[in-house]
Design a binder for these strands. Structure first.
Length: 480
RNA sequence: CGGGAAGUGGCUCAGUCUGGUAGAGCACCUGGUUCGGGACCAGGGGGUCGCAGGUUCAAAUCCUGUCUUCCCGACCA
């Protein structure tokens, strides 16, 4: 056993919070900044975000959206135009009061989200039904003055994308909100390998200014829920607040229907807490900037120059290009390198030593299972790519099985409270749908309704807490 | 924002109670031997102790303020 103390990762069973921070530190995903609640996203972390961006941006464009950029600063009065919106966001906004050495006539808010500035522009851009739909997305940073922050999960400033669309009809806006939620589901499940539940938020939990909010909800390895993305049907609220109208085919002036939707760097937090283990980060192959690393085993009995050149050949033969690295460092032992790449979550390790050279083989080691495979060098490309796909699938299946294991159907309050405390998880329960009832449960148990799942079956029942009739089960959980 | 804990070379920490001018392990640099799960030997470089004041002949150490981080709570992507 090594005496080295650096990069130690606390076991998640012992201290889940510390484990999460240790994984981030060991994989060098992020670091703290001098400003409270802000973080520096380091290259390893930013690479994850870049791949999320790339994947999502393609999907946005495939569904007819275009990118634009709106300013960071928003006039104070814009926030006051939509009553619920100002109530929801004003308290957590940072405000710029001075510029150029003097006090500003009107304070400027640093955007916590961009509905207001965007709809003030849409007013200028929309006048006819021929201008609709308007499907714009922006990649941006936003600022929310949160009381308590956590790397990636809740930081004062964070990166996200926010889509803002304008439509001629309510139905079209509704379809858009649902379509984008589906885009998020695909991203989460197929790229991040995070199983999610799609559903509707309750009145209490919906976005400030929305008619209704849809979300994807994931379960972390401490059995708590994490909202991983949201899509809002905004109705005509912002159109009315900013007086955005169009003339329909009949020449009638009408308010525009709207949606907005977003995912943020929080997804990286979700990724960490879904797949990583006590060895460190685990990244699904489709998201990994480095999908595989070749570790040559050097020794005094072998020609190290030959070993390195063979290692490079092996790397080339996989066809992974930039996504495969050869760890050529001669001052580090193989064991050290194994740990190093495991902490960084590289999905596949390829070992090449003297014995392998002799047998014309390599050793493949999976990050997800730790399994070692001895495979011939011939046909390595197919083997490696097949294995990466298998790892991707396995991570998803494993996470889904885990979530299902901690999802319970509960029919009485006593069981509800007991399960919530131990072991925690998703509790499928009947609820009356009333806000007061929901608030009382949260106050007493810390559990919130994560969503009303789309696939919840019609089923007659009674609210677990007040006995009023219910037709569907909702998901309760403690959430981040 | 309330309660608790903590900030000392890159990292983990000792030293603080009982002031006397900073130490260990790992990391780093050089040379050599190693290398199939965190190698070893020898030599070497680097910190004024989060920041700002105060007390004192003298402050990492005592006092005041402040900033940041972690945990618990109220607020949230």
């Amino acid at each position: 056993m090594s005496k080295k103390q650096d990069n130690k990762i606390s076991p998640m069973e012992q201290d889940y919070n510390q484990w999460y921070l240790d994984v981030i530190q060991a994989a060098q995903l992020a670091d703290y900044s001098p400003v409270k609640g802000c973080m520096v996203i380091r290259p390893n972390g930013y690479a994850l975000w870049e791949n999320i961006q790339r994947t999502l941006d393609e999907m946005f464009k495939d569904t007819g959206h275009v990118n634009a950029y709106f300013p960071l600063l928003i006039p104070e009065n814009f926030f006051q135009k939509e009553a619920e919106h100002v109530e929801g966001f004003a308290p957590e906004c940072a405000v710029v009061t001075h510029g150029g050495g003097s006090k500003l006539e009107e304070p400027l808010y640093i955007r916590p989200t961009s509905e207001t500035i965007i709809w003030s522009m849409y007013r200028k851009w929309i006048s006819s039904h021929r201008d609709l739909p308007l499907l714009i997305n922006q990649w941006a940073n936003v600022l929310r003055w949160e009381m308590r922050t956590r790397l990636f999960l809740r930081t004062t400033e964070f990166l996200w994308q926010e889509g803002h669309t304008a439509h001629a009809t309510e139905k079209e806006a509704e379809q858009e909100a649902l379509r984008m939620l589906e885009v998020y589901r695909k991203l989460a499940e197929e790229t991040l390998a995070i199983p999610v539940i799609c559903g509707t938020k309750t009145e209490k939990e919906k976005f400030a200014g929305a008619e209704h909010t849809y979300s994807i909800e994931a379960m972390m390895q401490d059995h708590r829920a994490l909202q991983a993305g949201t899509s809002h049907h905004l109705g005509q609220n912002f159109a009315k607040a900013f007086d955005v109208t169009f003339q329909d085919e009949q020449g009638q002036r009408q308010f525009v229907w709207a949606t907005s939707w977003g995912v943020s760097t929080r997804l990286i937090g979700a990724l960490i807490m879904t797949h990583s283990d006590n060895k460190g980060l685990v990244v699904p192959p489709r998201l990994a900037a480095t999908k595989a690393v070749v570790v040559p085993i050097l020794s005094k009995n072998a020609d190290s120059g030959l070993m390195l050149s063979e290692a490079r050949k092996i790397a080339d033969s996989t066809g992974l290009g930039r996504a495969i690295k050869v760890d050529e460092r001669e001052n580090l032992s193989p064991g050290w390198k194994f740990h190093h790449w495991e902490q960084r979550g590289v999905p596949l390790r390829i070992e090449l030593g003297p014995r392998d050279l002799e047998n014309h083989q390599v050793v493949l080691v999976r990050r997800d299972t730790g399994e070692k495979l001895f495979v011939p060098q011939d046909g390595l490309k197919d083997k490696v790519n097949g294995l990466l796909e298998e790892i991707q699938q396995n991570l998803f299946n494993r996470a889904k099985a885990y979530r299902d294991e901690y999802t319970y159907v509960v029919d009485d309050e006593e069981t509800f409270r007991a399960k919530l405390e131990d072991p925690g998880g998703f509790l499928l329960a009947h609820h009356c749908g009333e806000r007061e009832c929901e608030e009382r449960i949260q106050a007493e148990t810390k559990a919130t309704i994560r969503c009303i799942p789309f696939d919840a079956e019609q089923e007659e029942g009674k609210c677990l807490f007040c006995g009023k009739p219910s037709h569907k089960r909702v998901i309760f959980a403690k959430a981040y």
